[in-house]
Design a protein around this nucleic acid. Structure first.
Length: 524
RNA sequence: CGGUGGGUAGCUCAGUGGGUAAGAGCGCCGUAUUACAGGUACGGAGGACAGGGGUUCGAGCCCUCUCCCACCGACCA
């Protein structure tokens, strides 16, 4: 067995800062720190909020798989104008609003299989760190206190604009309001003085609360250090949020804040009915009140998007995760209900395969070991025809992941792998016990192990999907009886009766499948 | 207007430091397995890669111009 060491620079990532793909080399060999901008928890999450968490969950899994020790941080903004407004509107405290929506957010993450986050710091738990950070900036002359408000002095930072490729000079802010206190219109708030009845904290500049950007600088510094490897977020955060973060952190520490900036594409809502081939389903659309957008628009809470929890309830988290992973993280994802539905159809191919595999080998796919390392998964296909192809798909899958985490392309390798394995079972007639060749069975199992390995990198098929009831013993007995009755009818060529049984069961959501080795059934 | 990301099969998306035959999923048609259906496999229809120009022996991939779409444009925009 060869334990080949993987090339150290196999992974390449697209860096927003340089606008090109760069070889991935962590600052500290073997260790990776990732900071992802999380939600402002003033309302329930929508599907757009899951793009970053899902892709970074896969990224972390992949980096761990490649042997890195990864720390992944996702922050929670729990103090902000919007939270204050919401609290006022609903006659609750800001903290109550935050707690409610954090619960929603965490529940959504869990449903989508996002379980790789190491730390979820809240802004309100780091007020001290934030104040220290601001004090430091003032001491160094990069920020100034203006009557209880503290602003960052953009003109003192010659690098300002390097991430979003804008110069402060180009950007003329509007006059009036708080702008009157600013030295330059492009200065932004680090600390906001408290207005009456607002949540506030003591500070050297009086009662107040942190500005929008400073928490990320302070918390990433506290948890990951002055310079860390990867900072992620949505494309819409490049400016001003991340631009301001870099300015704050780099002026404060005098060194680069982040080595690789990674930004995921945004999601758009699309008109319903554009996804192909739904003529059948359209006719019998059961829960037909899909919101009919007429054109594509950005999904945002300000436009009323929400209801992710409801979407998850309707489709299940795995579908949504798969839907998100099917595209490249940097491209725009067009979202509609049919798209999720279609992703689910693709997913069923895998689920059926796992059932078939269990029938043939008696092994439960979901029990196969899944938390391997890249080097563990290496194998020598020798002269085994099947394993030679499996090996090639594995190489291809990994090459695609190495190339800026191209999960969409990697998914197509998964499909090809399944087809390969299905074909093998067909040709080797593995379904019929009397033909089962031990060598072929061993090859199949080795091939499926690789499928398990690769799909786990994407966090797919971690657990058996929830079947809507029906797993109980009584149902099993009843089905045995129905199938026996139907078999009798078929033997007598009484197809009217056998079809009546099959059609009747279908209406109950049970699909009958006649196979060589007997009749099986499955709940849809 | 400035910045950013896009425009590839009916639909949703891939396309690896440019190279003989353009890929996946879904949808559609057919064949095999066969009463039929479902499943699986195989095969097929369907793309001159937004448009023009350029570099190159050779470009979907590089350069340039144009058109179209989306997002961001400093936080009482």
């Amino acid at each position: 067995m060869t334990t080949s060491t993987l090339p150290p620079n196999a992974v390449r990532v697209y860096n927003t800062l340089s606008k090109q793909k760069e070889p991935f080399e962590p600052l500290t060999p073997g260790k990776v720190g990732i900071y992802l901008c999380g939600p402002t928890v003033y309302k329930e999450a929508h599907i757009g909020h899951m793009v970053g968490p899902v892709i970074f969950d896969a990224i972390k899994r992949y980096l761990v798989y490649c042997g890195y020790d990864v720390t992944w941080v996702v922050n929670i903004t729990d103090v902000d104008d919007k939270l204050i407004d919401e609290a006022r509107k609903r006659q609750l405290t800001m903290q109550q609003i935050a707690e409610e929506n954090i619960a929603d957010y965490v529940g959504n993450l869990q449903a989508l299989g996002v379980d790789q986050i190491d730390v979820m710091p809240k802004a309100t738990e780091h007020i001290g760190d934030i104040i220290d950070f601001i004090s430091n900036l003032i001491e160094k002359g990069f920020a100034y206190d203006a009557d209880g408000d503290v602003f960052f002095d953009v003109m003192r930072d010659p690098d300002y604009g390097k991430l979003s490729n804008r110069s402060a000079d180009d950007q003329q802010g509007e006059g009036g309001g708080a702008a009157a206190k600013k030295r330059s219109p492009s200065d932004f708030a680090l600390w906001k003085s408290a207005k009456p009845n607002e949540p506030s904290w003591d500070s050297p500049w009086g009662q107040g609360r942190p500005g929008w950007h400073i928490e990320c600088s302070a918390m990433s510094h506290k948890i990951l250090g002055e310079t860390f490897d990867i900072h992620g977020g949505g494309l819409d955060l490049v400016f001003p949020h991340h631009e301001n973060e870099v300015a704050q952190s780099e002026c404060c520490h005098g060194k680069p804040m982040v080595k690789y900036w990674m930004h995921n594409g945004l999601m758009r809502a699309a008109a319903a009915g554009k996804v192909g081939g739904r003529t059948e389903r359209e006719a019998q659309a059961d829960d037909a009140d899909t919101p009919a957008a007429t054109k594509e628009t950005k999904i945002s809470r300000s436009k009323g998007a929400g209801g992710l929890a409801e979407l998850i309830k309707r489709h299940g988290g795995e579908r949504i995760r798969f839907f998100l992973l099917r595209t490249h993280y940097r491209s725009t994802i067009v979202f509609n209900d049919e798209g999720i539905e279609e992703a689910g159809t693709g997913l069923e191919t895998f689920h059926r395969f796992f059932e078939r595999y269990a029938r043939v080998t008696g092994q439960d796919y979901y029990s196969l070991p899944a938390n391997g390392r890249r080097s563990d998964g290496e194998f020598d296909p020798q002269s085994d025809a099947l394993l030679g192809k499996v090996h090639a798909h594995r190489e291809s899958f990994l090459a695609k992941m190495d190339d800026d985490f191209n999960t969409g392309a990697a998914v197509s390798e998964l499909f090809e792998l399944v087809r390969l394995l299905n074909r093998f079972m067909d040709r080797q007639k593995l379904e019929a016990a009397e033909y089962q060749d031990p060598h072929a069975m061993a090859s199949l199992q080795r091939g499926v192990q690789t499928l398990r390995e690769l799909s786990s990198i994407l966090g797919l098929f971690q657990q058996a999907p929830d079947k809507p009831g029906g797993g109980d013993a009584l149902t099993g007995k009843l089905m045995e009886l129905m199938i026996a009755l139907r078999a009798e009818a078929r033997a007598n060529k009484d197809y009217a009766t056998s079809d009546r049984i099959r059609d009747g069961l279908r209406e109950l959501g049970i699909t009958i499948e006649d196979r060589k080795d007997g009749t099986g059934w499955r709940l849809e």
